[in-house]
């Protein structure tokens, strides 16, 4: 699609873009992936630690330990976000700190803190899900479609 768009540009702009791209600093994809792997893996490792802790010392099974683990991770995220540490981790780790549920928490909490100056109702309240909103919206909608298809298939005896 990007190529199609380029073709509509005047040749001067096309030449310039090529000229510019040659000099553009490329994203270090491999290095970024390694960092994302290590940090993302580490966050999941911590998650596993927390969930094992809940299984051993509290009344939770493997099934039910997921929720308190998530809540604990998001609590830790709140502290890291509030003290201005999470955005630095994010610059280093990229997807490594964005993809785990802590990244979801960071998106919500950072928006909440940022819009505090606009008041708690219209600032915090309405902007809190500015970044994380699409995740909830399309998570719910795609889950609806998947569950709908699956339920119908079961009903019709296909699976």
């Amino acid at each position: 699609m990007a190529d199609k768009k380029k073709k509509n540009l005047p040749p001067e702009a096309q030449n310039y873009q090529a000229f510019q791209e040659e000099r553009e600093v490329k994203r270090p994809v491999l290095l970024n992936c390694i960092k994302a792997f290590l940090v993302g893996g580490f966050i999941c490792f911590i998650g596993q630690l927390i969930s094992t802790f809940y299984i051993y010392y509290f009344h939770f099974t493997e099934q039910t330990a997921g929720n308190p683990t998530t809540a604990t991770l998001i609590f830790i995220t709140m502290l890291l976000t509030g003290f201005g540490i999470y955005d630095r981790i994010g610059q280093f780790a990229g997807a490594g700190s964005a993809v785990p549920v802590t990244g979801f928490g960071n998106a919500v909490i950072s928006s909440a803190i940022e819009y505090k100056t606009e008041g708690f109702i219209l600032g915090v309240g309405s902007n809190m899900l500015k970044l994380a909103g699409p995740v909830i919206v399309y998570g719910v909608f795609s889950a609806f479609l998947v569950a709908l298809v699956k339920t119908l298939l079961i009903k019709w005896g296909v699976i």
Binding site: T52, I55, Y56, F60, T61, E62, Q63, A65
Partner: peptide
């Protein structure tokens, strides 16, 4: 009979 693979139940 109940059979489970949950770590918590093992404990």
């Amino acid at each position: 009979v109940e059979l489970t693979t949950d770590k918590k139940i093992v404990i």
